[in-house]
């Protein structure tokens, strides 16, 4: 069944079961693989995108629920890697393997959209994504830096 999604400012047509999780529609049907599969049960946050500006874990949202809403993925965060979060991530050299970092950055975008000067406690509570390389302290510092750069 075909339906339309609005992803990174463009309307795209998808031919899939509308109950397919948004994550797999993005990855397999739209070939947008920046959004990662990590756990599939709404825990690790690797699949985080923003929907109407709010961070959301796309593994747990049927694509049908995202119809008519504005979805932003890591690919659409900025045309040239200059979003404040991307600049902060680069400046602090946050990633190690990098696999979780799309989700980390999108979670940070969602946090900063509703709280422009988050405290460490705000950051910890809002993020809570898994990073097996253990970049948590750099992520915290990079979010503080991004808040300055916005």
């Amino acid at each position: 069944m075909a339906f339309d999604l609005k992803v990174n400012g463009k309307t795209v047509s998808v031919d899939a079961d509308p109950q397919t999780p948004l994550l797999w529609v993005l990855r397999d049907h739209l070939a947008m693989t920046g959004t990662k599969y990590g756990c599939g049960i709404n825990q690790c946050g690797a699949c985080t995108v923003t929907i109407d500006g709010q961070a959301a874990r796309s593994c747990n949202i049927p694509a049908a629920q995202a119809v008519g809403k504005s979805i932003v993925t890591i690919e659409g965060l900025s045309p040239d890697r200059t979003h404040a979060v991307q600049r902060a991530w680069a400046e602090l050299d946050v990633p190690q393997c990098g696999f979780c970092q799309s989700g980390q950055m999108m979670a940070a975008v969602g946090l900063l959209a509703r709280n422009s000067k988050p405290s460490d406690a705000d950051i910890d509570q809002a993020m809570n994504n898994l990073c097996r390389c253990g970049t948590y302290l750099k992520i915290r510092a990079a979010i503080r830096r991004a808040a300055e750069l916005v």
Binding site: M32, T33, G34, T35, K36, Y37, T73, I74, E75, L77, S78, R81, Q86, W89, A90, D93, P95, G98, F99, Q101, S102, M105
Partner: peptide, 17 residues
Amino acid sequence: KRINMQHILDGSAVYGL
């Protein structure tokens, strides 16, 4: 800094998945 940083920042780094 890591030479693949650019590709991590915009989600274009290709992992096996």
